[in-house]
Nucleic acid binder design. Structure first.
Lengths: 114, 114
DNA sequence: CGTAATACATCGTATCGCGAAGTATAGTAT
DNA sequence: ATACTATACTTCGCGATACGATGTATTACG
């Protein structure tokens, strides 16, 4: 997949990966892998960025002798996901512009989003 | 709209704007405006990039005393649009991961893509 | 005993969108 | 007449970002 296309999804995917339950770096990468791949350096950069933006909080815990940093989504993080959902409508409109699909008689677009 | 989300669309939108008939910078911006906005500096950078990548060809013509550079899409440019269409399926899959939509019983996804 | 997997961190690089500023002409308003 | 707006293209530099390379440290496995 085109790298530029990935850019807008990475951050929100990381948030989605911790939305249901707290998670840690290595697990996030594995959970995201079927959908979108990212390197460790990218992930930890994103996590740091999201923490600075107060979209997640961090808690360090020991797990079998190793340290793990568990990430927890904040209300701001959930808001970010909601904003992505509204952006999706715009994305669809642009997609149709590119593919020259007729936008006027689209009735059933449920699978694409709200 | 999120800037990062825009990134993957800009290039392919410019190609879409010249796909039906040759166009020039200023007109491309105006045609794209209802869907996605971009500054002149961005556009001309993209046009140069697409030209280098052989996705479009350029022809200079005079129009009412002023010079215009008309851009014409090449087969490589059309291929780029086709690749975007296939990428869209992946995008949808990621969208559903983020929104936790059930991917298993999606039958009618016509309005979203091919 | 070495290799792979787990787990996190940092640095430098390349790409890219965009604001700012510049050049030039044609049409419109004051 | 003069100023402003629209048209049309160009270049520079900044900031954001993804990622490969590299490093550190522990556990598990053969």
């Amino acid at each position: 997949m085109d790298i530029q296309l990935k850019r807008g999804l990475l951050e929100v995917c990381v948030l989605a990966a911790i939305a249901d339950e707290d998670s840690y770096g290595y697990k996030i990468i594995k959970d995201m892998k079927p959908y979108i791949e990212l390197s460790e350096s990218t992930l930890y950069t994103i996590l740091k960025r999201l923490e600075t933006a107060d979209m997640l909080s961090v808690r360090t815990a020991e797990h079998e002798g190793r340290l793990r940093k568990y990430y927890h989504i904040t209300p701001a993080g959930r808001k970010r996901i909601e904003e992505f959902k509204s952006d999706w409508a715009e994305m669809l409109s642009i997609y149709r512009f590119v593919t020259k699909e007729d936008e006027s008689h689209v009735e059933n677009n449920i699978p694409c989003g709200p």
